[in-house]
Design a binder for these strands. Structure first.
Lengths: 367, 367
DNA sequence: TTGAAAGCGCTAACAG
DNA sequence: CTGTTAGCGCTTTCAA
């Protein structure tokens, strides 16, 4: 057995000032450097005793593997890329946080690659993809549904996972949540409070979640035996201003809704602003709900009832899939899709309908 | 001269499916692979004719250098790290955008490393720093003023540039803007409109910009021969809610201000909300200004008069400094600090004071 | 179960 | 000005 006294020479750098290498660890542990490599990569065929000795030596020397060398020799960069063209900074912020957390645990780093929404995908993407050396790419909506982008990535031979994609479910692994059912539950919440006249503001049709959230809303209304007037469904652009404008249209309806379900928080904030300007107080005169549980949803006054999307968890799961696939080699992707749970967050912006909302005229019927 | 017919063999991959290497390019150009390396790295001592031939061959073969190999051999990772604990997603978003743009141009990628504001810097940082192989690190406020973090980074031997640091100007290069003068100009704008009773909402003292912005405000007021009542300076936390609360205190002053200068946009939005709830319309009854030119500043109604910070430009400049320093070798940092220009953006939230703001009582004097 | 040899693709030092 | 020779630190054969 080797002399373990050598292990006491601690420190992240050797005496000559260079970084500790696998060979230093091997020497300290009294084994060949290949054995150290085996231990590091969790390969089989290493005696437990030796494995422990190597681990101990690595620890004592403050050894950290050189990523560049691992990449060059083994083809793994220990980098995950995050590609997005989503204008919502808070969404991207959460995606990043979730991805980073998991990356750190696994010794990976996260590279960000924002794309301008207007970019010519082909022209911008190819140079980026050819330079980018990542073990996998995470794509968020809406770019995850852009066929030009997907083609370019596949052509470059880069493995990827999509967050909440809208179509081509079989094309690549994805992580998502059930938007339709979340919207359904939110609508149930309003119905249970006693609301019958519920306005809905949907998002832009370019965004996949738009249709799913509307579907959940309509399903809940249908099941409750309610028909939704044409004017009760307005289109927004997921922005504060568009929510404000849509709310103004909603408030001008012959029968004013007693609740407005905006399909994201930014629009819901616009709704609250419009209500306030119209002299309506939330939730006494009108209930407002959002979708996202963004930062401003908590800053609003009153705080917004909304759906908490597991955004960080989704990107964390995406990293897991990527790393796992990488470890298993480069075969065809196993199907590893994951559906995560959302959460209905009830706060101050919803309440039972007050007496002040008149409801007299007959309602128009939707289509 | 070598046969240039070979150059027609285009494509990013060789026939055997592996990536095109420097040797393939050398062969196609009829030179040694070291010469290709010289051309790639813009080293001197290459005949123009040969340089062109090599470039052409590289282009034709779709050659892209292998970053891992360059890193391993040359010690440059072509990665820039961005470290932050700033809770403002929009600020970070802009920082990232600016940094990425410049990184792409120079063939670099950007790694993001968020730190939780509450993190034990030592414990979290050391493992991150030892694994991180970047050619330089960008630090944003407030982490760029955290001595524990700075110590850890310097100990790890990583070069860094700070964005808008608050102290230790000589410790490392930085990029910043003149917050004090921007606040001065904003105050001048209000004074020029005819406002005399201007309330100011400062940020948390933990944030370096807070003192600088207040200083600019006070200087402009002083130069105009105005004294600022004690109650006219309120403290906020750079959040919507804190701005709203501060505005309520301001509006309760014996002499109600005719203008409120909030030292960031989020607080200004809270101010507008509070004014609206108090039955005051902006800008007829009261002018409101922010600082940042954030997304919500444009979404607000009316749109906010504010200061556009060159956030993206600052991070782009930081990348420049880092890359330039890297190219020049690892000597002591040259002083390369940069001060960038801000811009006063006048929009709908400011106007001359209306007739409705009474001004009768004598004012208290500030300290 | 372990070890020795042979590169990965590039840059750094030295020769010519 | 250009080419040759050595590695960078690690993983991957393959042999023991």
């Amino acid at each position: 057995m080797a002399d373990t006294a050598d292990l006491d020479i601690a420190g992240a750098r050797r005496l000559d000032g260079r970084q500790t290498t696998i060979k230093d660890v091997a020497q300290a542990a009294g084994v060949s450097f290949k054995t150290v490599s085996r231990v590091l990569n969790q390969e089989p065929n290493v005696r437990a005793e030796i494995r422990d000795r190597v681990r101990q030596a690595a620890e004592a020397l403050g050894y950290v593997p050189n990523v560049a060398a691992r990449d060059l020799a083994g083809g793994r960069s220990f980098l995950i890329g995050l590609m997005f063209d989503n204008p919502s900074e808070s969404y991207i912020g959460k995606i990043q946080t979730g991805a980073i957390t998991r990356c750190r645990d696994a010794g990976y780093s996260l590279i960000v690659e924002p794309l301008e929404p207007g970019d010519d995908a082909r022209r911008t993407l190819d140079p980026i993809l050819s330079r980018l050396r990542v073990d996998g790419l995470i794509l968020t909506p809406p770019i995850c549904d852009n066929p030009v982008v997907l083609d370019a990535i596949e052509r470059a031979g880069v493995r990827y996972v999509r967050i909440a994609p809208d179509r081509d479910a079989d094309r690549a692994p994805f992580v998502t949540m059930d938007d339709a059912h979340a919207a359904y539950e939110m609508t149930r919440h309003l119905l249970t409070l006693g609301h019958l006249d519920i306005g809905f503001i949907k998002g832009p049709s370019s965004h996949g979640a738009t249709a799913r959230r509307l579907e959940g809303f309509l399903r809940a209304m249908g099941e409750a035996g309610l028909t939704v007037p044409v004017g009760y469904i307005q289109v927004g652009a997921f922005s504060f201003q568009s929510g404000m404008a849509a709310a103004e249209r909603l408030l001008a309806e012959p029968v004013r809704p007693t609740a407005i379900f905006a399909s994201n928080d930014d629009m819901a904030l616009g709704v609250m602003w419009a209500c306030s300007r119209a002299g309506l107080s939330v939730p006494t005169d009108i209930s407002v709900t959002g979708f996202d549980d963004s930062e401003p949803a908590r800053m609003a006054w009153p705080q917004l009832t909304t759906i908490r999307q597991p955004i960080a968890d989704m990107s964390a799961a995406a990293v897991d899939i990527l790393i796992e696939a990488g470890a298993k080699g480069r075969g065809p992707e196993p199907v590893a899709n994951r559906w995560l749970d959302y959460e209905l967050i009830v706060r101050g912006s919803t309440a039972a309908p007050g007496a002040r909302s008149p409801r007299v005229e007959p309602r128009k019927t939707n289509s």
